[in-house]
Amino acid sequence: MQFGFLVEQVLIGIATGAIYAIIAVGLNLIFGTMNVLNMAHGSAIMIGSFGVLLSYYVGVENFWIGCAVGIVLAFLTGLLVERVAVRPMKGNWWNTKIATIGMAFVLENLVTVITEGRPQLYPRPFNPVYYVVYGDIKTPGGTLIEISNIQLMLIALSILMVVGMVLFLYRTATGKAIRVVAQSPDIARCVGIDVKRTIVVGFAVSATLAGIAGILNGVTFGSTYSFIGFQLILKGIVVLIVAGIGNMRGCLWVGMLLGVIESLSVGLGESTYRDFIAYSGMVLVLVFRPWGLFGEEGRVQREV
């Protein structure tokens, strides 16, 4: 096994892990405000990724305009989910969970019908350029490490988004309101916070992040399909649980760790073990640290 190959796998892993991190951060935001696992988060991921294709389909063949369409559609999906599958449940944990699952099935099957279930090719923002990080391209058989501009963009964006989310939650009035609602809706009302509005904002922000994750995933794998959301939300949940619910920075680290583990197991020829490794790792964490690697002890007893 070549050293250069290993490093490349790690870099690819970090880039895909970054997507998991963004998804987990979005889930975390809703879990934080509503104490609810939003199972329709995957729909916003899927709709975000298809938004880009939609704009190409109607003839606007510009990747960045497509991104804007995807993000707006994901944002609207978030508002729709909140209005239809969350607000009418009046805070009932189980009902909300089932309703959001139902919502996810409706949206994802709708897109399956439209696309006839076929995977769709995904456009690229720019042509990939590979930069040599280590070694010499002219030496055949020597150690060579390369990274593409697209991978760099993915890593940079995900770090930016997690940092942005932490700043939003800890520095802005809206972010503070979200944290207060998460800890006590009654106290939130008593200090003048409009809880209903705050929850809507939480869903909108979360779904926007999901849309961005969907687009990044499409770019990374060069294609998307109608059930991409279901596949990715599972990874997001693993990251959220392993990181510890409520911890944004933890999501970044664990997301990238999961990406690297996956990419190494594929790279080492053990692709069948990919999910086995990821999920057994999650179970181990749950057994020994039920509150997660970065979470706060005691938080785990709060719900259900």
């Binding site: 944290r179 800890q183 009302r189 008593c190 200090v191 003048g192 916070i193 409009d194 809880v195």
Partner: peptide
């Protein structure tokens, strides 16, 4: 709504949840 009452100068201090534990 309760949050509008706060703006009028009414301080509500409920007993079920007293403080925000993680702040």
């Amino acid at each position: 709504e309760t949050h509008e009452m706060a703006k009028l100068g009414i301080a509500n201090i409920p007993s079920s949840e007293i403080v925000l534990p993680r702040m």
